[in-house]
């Protein structure tokens, strides 16, 4: 599929060019690429917020083309939950419970049931039940973001699309947030699509990686395949996860790693025999 911004006007600009890929059910897919590479444009096609100018996007069994009518897109929007950057900016209700219940109520769930669901969602994102009756605006930034995510989860999506979900959080908050998504992926079987600049998160969590550059899909594969070629990544203004970067420095000093370690534990496991093993004193 391709997408042109403001097609048919003098301001027309290429957003995406001839992209072909499949995101598998139950996968954890990361989309990487430097600022302006088309990551967010691609993301907005995943629940038909944008429609391709040419080609097709198939979501479940629904085919979206340029001709697709804006009516009847609700089931797709419900199926594919979208967590935008700085999701906490979209909170507006008086209480956390009402904010989370807003989406389901819009989709016809009775208010009482929706608020009951809200309690379950709050637990799912790791917040204490006390927050339900609090104003979302009295919570910390990280907690507010969790409430916004709970609001998306309340729609019971099967796919969760995350656009830089940890931007602006402190390191502990980032780690908690990423662990939470991984838990949702493992326990609820959610398909996850993550747009991120954090290569460590790609290495730690994704099983499939799409690399975007200037609106094109320039490479896809497992994290290990993608991070194998540091020079190619640098050409596309992308870096390595910290572990892979360290392994690269060590390789230059005569160490050998096979396969390429992606986590600190994998690197330590492969390093140990090369530095004389455990100490014997």
């Amino acid at each position: 599929m391709s997408f042109t911004y403001q097609a048919g006007t003098p301001f027309a600009g290429d957003g995406l060019k001839d992209v072909t890929t499949t995101i598998k059910d139950g996968s954890y897919t990361a989309i990487i690429g430097h600022t302006g590479s088309g990551k967010s444009t691609l993301l907005q096609h995943l629940n038909a917020l944008l429609k391709p100018t040419a080609g097709t996007v198939t979501i479940g069994d629904r085919v979206i083309t340029n001709e697709t009518n804006n009516k009847n897109l609700k089931p797709i929007r419900r199926e594919v939950g979208m967590v935008f950057q700085f999701a906490e900016n979209q909170l507006f209700e008086q209480t956390v419970a009402k904010d989370i219940a807003f989406g389901p109520t819009n989709f016809g769930v009775p208010a009482e049931e929706a608020e009951k669901q809200a309690a379950a969602m709050v637990a799912l994102v790791g917040l204490p039940p006390e927050v339900l009756e609090q104003s979302p605006f009295d919570l910390s930034g990280g907690q507010m973001r969790r409430v916004a995510i709970a609001g998306v989860l309340a729609m019971k999506p099967s796919v969760l699309v995350l656009d830089e979900p940890t931007a602006g959080l402190d390191p502990a908050g980032r780690a908690e947030m990423m662990t939470m998504f991984n838990r949702l992926h493992q326990e609820q079987g959610l398909t996850i699509v993550l747009v991120t600049h954090q290569m460590d998160d790609v290495a730690d969590y994704a099983d499939h990686v799409l690399v975007m550059d200037q609106g094109r899909l320039v490479k896809e594969g497992t994290p290990r395949e993608i991070f194998q070629d540091a020079d190619w990544l640098a050409d596309h203004q992308l870096g390595l996860p910290k572990t892979a970067a360290m392994a690269r420095r060590l390789t230059a000093q005569g160490f050998r790693f096979d396969p390429l370690p992606l986590t600190t534990a994998q690197l330590a496991d492969q390093l140990l025999p090369q530095i004389g093993g455990p100490a014997h004193d």
């Binding site: 600190t264 140990l272 455990p278 100490a279």
Partner: peptide, 8 residues
């Protein structure tokens, strides 16, 4: 991580 594996 190396220390946990017994390295000095």
């Amino acid at each position: 991580a190396l220390r946990r594996r017994g390295a000095k």
